[in-house]
Design a protein around this nucleic acid. Structure first.
Lengths: 156, 156
DNA sequence: ATTGAAACTCAGCATGT
DNA sequence: ACATGCTGAGTTTCAAT
């Protein structure tokens, strides 16, 4: 008989019931909400809420709590998303590999749908942003691109 | 919009002193830390800490608090981007506010260009993803949406 | 910054499934 | 066993000073 202190994590799939989802959704909206308040939403006592959240922590689902700061104040800069349309016989991976060199590229994904790839940019200002987008458009494998400047980050 | 009730924030003019940075750093690490605990770090009373944080909230520096989830533990590996087209006379902010309730919404931005907003989703699988997108499409202010499933994240 | 009242957290114990 | 509810002591919040 083996002693079991850690909950066994079935590879990658932790099961959440509907109540867990309610609690997490509420905590997502207000990470400092009291357990009693959260409980009102789910018809649970504060104790039950706390136990469920503790369990979610120990299972690693909840990594912690944090403050959400306004991107501008954080010193974040001008952001944009650029959809990349690849030229024939060009793999998006090739293009994105060459985009790696740009510090302005925060993230990039290959996607299904009309465009082949989506690139998340961050630049000092619109001038800087324009220059980066221009360089991306001039990449050999890029047929065309479509840009959206981020006005504000409302979630995330 | 008929009237502008919200003050327009002059860009990037908020100044934080060293104490503010200390408090925010601590709250970043533990968003549920008590004011007294935070105060120990900065040699402030709990009341003083609370007042500073309240001021940071009212200045818009602190947007709120939230829970940090571990997507991998949840087994949520399917990602997508959804472009939202708002119905007439509907502000994207309204829609995105209602999207806050979904734990599957990783991030959301209002953007320039054809769509009004861009939403980053993360779900367990395509089934799960489909359900979330379906719920988003049914939001009152949403006229139409266009989804791209993420094939792979190459940068970021 | 300090005070005091109300609210909250959190352990231990009890109950129902 | 397990998840929840209750109780009470200690802590934290919050408005007033």
């Amino acid at each position: 008989m083996s002693e079991q202190t850690e909950p066994i994590r079935a590879s990658g799939s932790v099961v959440l019931d509907e109540t867990d989802r309610l609690l997490l959704a509420h905590l997502g909206r207000d990470g400092r909400a009291s357990y009693a308040d959260i409980g009102l939403l789910a018809n649970l006592s504060a104790t039950a809420v706390r136990r469920r959240i503790d369990r979610l922590r120990s299972r690693g689902v909840v990594r912690g709590f944090t403050v959400v700061l306004d991107p501008e104040v954080l010193g974040w800069q001008t952001e944009a998303f650029v959809e990349i349309y690849c030229r024939e016989r060009t793999a998006p991976e090739e293009i994105l590999a060459s985009l790696r060199q740009f510090a302005e590229v925060v993230a990039a994904w290959t996607v299904t749908g009309d465009p082949d790839a989506l690139v998340h940019l961050r630049a000092a200002d619109t001038r800087h942003l324009e220059a980066v987008i221009e360089r991306i458009r001039r990449e050999p494998g890029v047929q065309r691109s479509r840009s959206s400047v981020v006005l504000s980050q409302l979630i995330g």
